[in-house]
């Protein structure tokens, strides 16, 4: 069996003196779409930041494809193939759409036919093509969400971390994101996403991990988890 794409063992993470993750374990199988479920402040975003090296770590081990990346700076984590799409989108507002993509692009050890280019990205997100010279700060929320995903894809990641991709977006756009995630997964990419919206998660994910107070509470297949009574009570509002 091939090693997990991503594995976290007993991770502690801190914001200054405040501890946010308490021995969190997580396993993301290669090729899966895994979703982190949990309330606001449960530690979903922190988990992603911990993987990217953007928060201070205490104990624990992080592995990508069996290789330890614990304590690496963000740019090195990115270069072993982990792409990060942050929660607040964080496009470079003063840069055009094309320039945003240019920042994300780098020459990887990927065969040229599998490589992401402007054209391929615009095929995935047709609306962006017409906006290529527009400043990112002038885009709508949905367009910015597409741009951040596109920007991350330009780095040719094997694993993509999507932090609350449906947050604050109109239902139509959320459906587009669903399609995008399915497309990426079909192309062989491993996806880890965090969500509060279980309905959205159920449409795309095959595995789920429930996080509460900085710990992984439950892990299993999406069907298992969404049928779990505790999860239903906590997250599936009628």
């Amino acid at each position: 069996m091939s090693p997990s794409a991503l594995r976290l063992v007993g991770i502690d993470a801190y914001y200054g003196p405040a501890q946010a993750l308490f021995g969190l374990d997580l396993e993301v199988p290669t090729g899966s779409v895994t979703v982190l479920l949990g309330r606001n402040g449960a530690g979903k975003s922190t988990t992603m930041k911990a993987i990217m090296g953007l928060v201070a770590l205490g104990q624990g081990e992080i592995e990508v494809g069996g290789e330890s990346i614990t304590g690496w700076p963000a740019y090195r984590v990115n270069r072993v193939g982990v792409g990060y799409v942050p929660e607040e989108r964080r496009v470079f507002a003063g840069l055009s759409v094309m320039e945003n993509l240019l920042v994300g692009m780098h020459d990887p050890d990927v065969p040229s036919q599998a490589r992401w280019t402007h054209e391929r990205v615009f095929d995935l997100f047709p609306p962006l093509a017409a906006l290529r010279d527009r400043l990112a700060g002038q885009l709508s929320g949905g367009e910015q969400q597409m741009l951040t995903i596109a920007r991350t894809l330009m780095g040719n990641p094997g694993i993509i971390l999507l932090d609350e991709p449906s947050e604050g977006l109109a239902p139509v756009i959320v459906q587009q994101i669903v399609t995008t995630v399915k497309t990426l997964s079909a192309q062989g990419m491993t996806v880890l996403l965090s969500e509060q919206n279980v309905r959205f998660a159920a449409q795309v994910a095959d595995r789920a991990v429930v996080i509460e107070r900085g710990k992984a509470l439950l892990a299993g297949s999406m069907t298992e988890i969404s049928n779990d009574e505790r999860v239903r009570d906590a997250y599936l509002t009628p």
Binding site: M52, Y75, F92, A93, L95, E99, G104
Partner: peptide
């Protein structure tokens, strides 16, 4: 220019 706006994001992009 990108780093002037958000250095952390630039780093996360490799």
């Amino acid at each position: 220019r990108a780093a002037t706006e958000d250095r952390q994001m630039v780093s996360a992009l490799g």
